[in-house]
């Protein structure tokens, strides 16, 4: 109501453009939780629908990307909420022509057993190359919370990445 119509239209355009450009990013993020192509696609499709439908609730088009990630993460969350257990890849029916399974069992298990948001921080940081500020917006948390998640996640994975140091000598 309090937005001019053309501002509203341009937001929708921006969102659609981003969706069509980055759908695979959302897809692979979703797949890392669902291990099912169908479910991951569902999440991206539903997320895209909501992003357009509720485009007016995007306050600042400068942050459209994180805003869309937020929606996708909510869809992932909803999916996780509906399942009792996080599936392992072995449980899922063999995907058509998918030989490139995630190889390392320990690592995958560690990621799967993490808090879903801690996992999201790791993946968004290292696989999607998002800044911590962008991740904070996507998770709707403040920066320090995101940092704790990151370090907690890394500790769990027992890794030390180059640019993170968390007081260990």
């Amino acid at each position: 109501m309090f937005f001019e119509k053309n501002r509203s239209d341009s937001k929708e355009k921006i969102i659609e453009a981003i969706l069509c450009d980055k759908y695979n990013n959302y897809y692979r993020l979703a797949y890392s939780y669902t291990y099912s192509e169908a479910d991951a696609a569902d999440i991206v499709q539903e997320g895209a629908y909501k992003a357009i439908k509720y485009s007016d609730s995007l306050k600042n088009s400068q942050y459209a990307e994180s805003w869309i990630y937020r929606i996708m993460l909510n869809e992932i969350y909803r999916f996780l909420g509906k399942r009792k257990e996080i599936p392992t890849e072995d449980e899922m029916m063999p995907q058509q022509g998918k030989e490139d399974q995630y190889e390392n069992i320990d690592l995958k298990r560690a990621l799967d057993n993490m808090d879903y948001k801690d996992k999201a921080v790791i993946e968004l940081r290292y696989f999607e190359d998002m800044t911590l500020e962008e991740i904070a917006r996507a998770l709707e948390e403040n920066l320090s919370t995101v940092k704790s998640r990151l370090y907690r996640g890394l500790r769990k994975l027992r890794l030390e990445m180059e640019d993170e140091s968390y007081g260990k000598k």
Binding site: A40, V44, A48, K50, Y102, N104
Partner: peptide, 30 residues
């Protein structure tokens, strides 16, 4: 291992059919 995982992660992509379905949902929302 992390790098390998990242590679496997990054390879995932949506089928054309699913991309089309997404675009349909976008139109529906509009």
């Amino acid at each position: 291992d992390f790098e390998k995982y990242k590679d496997a992660y990054t390879e995932k992509s949506m089928s054309e059919l699913d991309v089309q379905k997404m675009k349909n949902r976008i139109e529906q929302a509009k």
